[in-house]
């Protein structure tokens, strides 16, 4: 048992030295596996901003994750076949430069989040869960039925996209790229949470009327947070596409939304580092159970069920000593 700060610090140190273990054990697959964990953790932190702190249960974050993936895949696809992207009368060149791709991903997922958020935030509660799901499903079915970028089969990238001076095909380099993005995300979300925006977001979750009474528009606060959340998850999707060098409609599916949501809840909401533990637990369990039994999902189901019924505050509550309290934790 330890304080939350100490645990957070340990998580980051552990991840930093992870490639070293991977080299010592002579198993580079560990690094790739942890790249996946770090990417899903970024997506989870993005979702947690609105889920844990804002009380908005989005069941459609795969829309942003998938869009990020597809922006990355499509830009690389056009770079590789030298055909410009045509949108009405405009033409764009594809690119394989990650810095550019990330900027495009952030822009496009923000625009999508503005659109989805604007309409979804007119509803609340269960209806909000379902309308976000509906938007994600629209994109999912669109990606299946639109054949230009592979339709149901998806799109393969022959090489990972590039970043100057680094070899992104090297698993350890790619891991550290993801790691740096994780750190940036944590710092950024922490900054947001302590800013007037984050404080009014948390207040809107508790009592919208009070927020309104001091002259802040809670809808606007929620919408801006939703956009930030979508952009972060979109970026994670972009990294995921490069990690696998493959995008397919699966990353837009409702199971993907569910998976991101599950790792947030498993790790513990209301805590910035919760999704990292959640992602770690989820992926490791998947690997571990997958190694010992063909029916690993059966046991995964059991473990999740027990967790929900008996460990309300998520896994993180097993590791740190301060008692779970929604109101004081942030």
């Amino acid at each position: 048992m330890m304080s939350e700060k100490k645990l957070n610090f340990l998580i980051l140190i552990f991840l930093f030295f992870l490639p070293l273990f991977s080299i010592l054990l002579n198993d580079i697959y560990i690094t790739t596996l942890f790249s996946k964990i770090v990417i899903l953790a970024i997506a989870g932190i993005g979702l947690n901003l609105i889920l844990g702190y804002g009380g908005m249960v989005s069941f459609g974050h795969a829309a942003f994750f998938g869009l990020g993936g597809y922006v990355t895949g499509i830009l690389a696809f056009h770079f590789n076949n030298y055909e410009p992207i045509q949108i009405l009368v405009f033409e764009f060149e594809g690119t394989n430069q990650l810095l550019l791709i990330w900027i495009f991903t952030l822009i496009f997922s923000s625009i999508l989040a503005l659109f989805i958020g604007y309409f979804s935030l007119r509803t609340s509660g269960v209806y909000f869960i379902m309308i976000t799901l509906a938007f994600a499903q629209m994109l999912y079915y669109f990606s299946i039925s639109w054949p230009t970028y592979g339709g149901e089969d998806g799109l393969s990238l022959s090489l990972r996209n590039q970043i100057p001076f680094f070899n992104t095909m090297d698993p350890i380099t790619f891991f550290y790229i993801c790691y740096v993005w994780l750190i940036i995300t944590i710092i950024f979300v922490k900054f947001i949470l302590n800013s007037p925006l984050g404080i009014s977001l948390k207040a809107s979750k508790e009592n919208e009327d009070r927020v309104r009474s001091v002259g802040i528009n809670p809808k606007k606060v929620k919408l801006i947070s939703f956009i930030i959340s979508g952009a972060i998850t979109g970026l994670a999707g972009s990294l995921y596409a490069d990690l696998n060098r493959f995008v397919s409609p699966t990353i837009l599916s409702w199971q993907m939304s569910g998976e991101i949501m599950i790792l947030v809840i498993l790790g513990g909401m209301f805590r910035l580092y919760g999704p990292i533990l959640g992602a770690f637990f989820y992926i490791i369990l998947e690997q571990f159970l997958g190694g010992i039994t063909e029916n690993w999902q059966f046991w995964l189901g059991f473990i999740i069920l027990l967790e929900v019924l008996y460990a309300k505050a998520g896994l993180i509550s097993f590791l740190i000593k301060d008692k779970y309290d929604e109101k004081t934790s942030s």
Partner: peptide, 28 residues
Amino acid sequence: RKLYKKDHLDQVLATFALILIFSEGIRW
């Protein structure tokens, strides 16, 4: 029965777990 008093998030998670159990159980 244990889920009625819990919030929607827990219900989503627990029933998602039930899907895994039922689907794998049937496959088994």
